[in-house]
Design a binder for these strands. Structure first.
Length: 202
DNA sequence: AATATGATAGTCT
DNA sequence: GACTATCATATTG
């Protein structure tokens, strides 16, 4: 399918539902692998076009200082959702990776909106479609994600992740909005997507 | 197009 | 008391 933007667009079908085993791997593998997968919350969502990797020995990660009350979910079992509030205003959504006891997760930064467009447009107040889910705070608003979802399963039920339906060209670059470990190329994105929070340099 | 700024509240030092 | 894994709007070139 070709979107109105002419950008890479997802087929209107779902790959196989992913189980906890997908997330029970090193976050260095899961983060790039997640690009091209489909994230649904209550049947609303789309294709992951941008994600960032965070891990325990990473000074930019909430898990860096150990399992504080906020970061506890990051140290829990893989395949769960870690939601935190950013700058007092926005919610941000992560998918917990690696074995229980390891503080690793992938921040979902942008989706290509595909399913539940009407609901997303309403929640986002009628902004242009390419900005519906272009950023971690924006996509949480579009999908109706808030703190109540923190710790919930992401492998069935209200939150589900489905595998890719075709080949994917993944780019890597430095993460956004952090002040430590700024040079680590741990942001991954779908090459050429028009739904990124920011483009990747050529 | 690039950069600046204010909103706003939880978390950690 | 300082610092955010942000976003929308405003301003400047």
């Amino acid at each position: 399918m070709v979107s109105a933007l002419g950008a890479v667009s997802a087929p209107p079908r779902l790959g196989p539902p992913l189980g906890a085993d997908f997330f029970a791997r090193p976050v260095a593998e899961v983060a790039p692998d997640l690009v091209g997968c489909t994230l649904l919350v209550g049947g609303v969502g789309g294709v992951v076009v941008e994600a960032e990797r965070y891990q325990e020995d990473d000074p930019a990660s909430h898990s860096f200082r150990g399992p504080t009350p906020r970061a506890a979910v990051m140290f829990g079992p893989p395949g769960r959702v870690y939601v935190y509030r950013s700058h007092g205003i926005h919610w941000c959504m992560n998918l917990v990776c690696e074995a229980e006891g390891r503080g690793a997760a992938v921040l979902v930064r942008a989706l290509e909106p595909v399913w539940g467009l009407a609901a997303m447009r309403e929640r986002r107040g009628g902004c242009p479609d390419r900005l519906l889910c272009a950023g971690p705070g924006r996509l949480c608003q579009a999908l109706g994600v808030d703190g109540a979802l923190n710790g919930a399963l992401a492998v069935g039920g209200r939150v589900a992740v489905h595998g890719r339906t075709g080949p994917v060209d993944v780019r890597a670059g430095p993460r956004i909005g952090i002040t430590r470990a700024v040079d680590e190329p741990w942001r991954f994105g779908l090459a050429g997507s028009g739904f990124l929070s920011r483009p990747f340099p050529r």
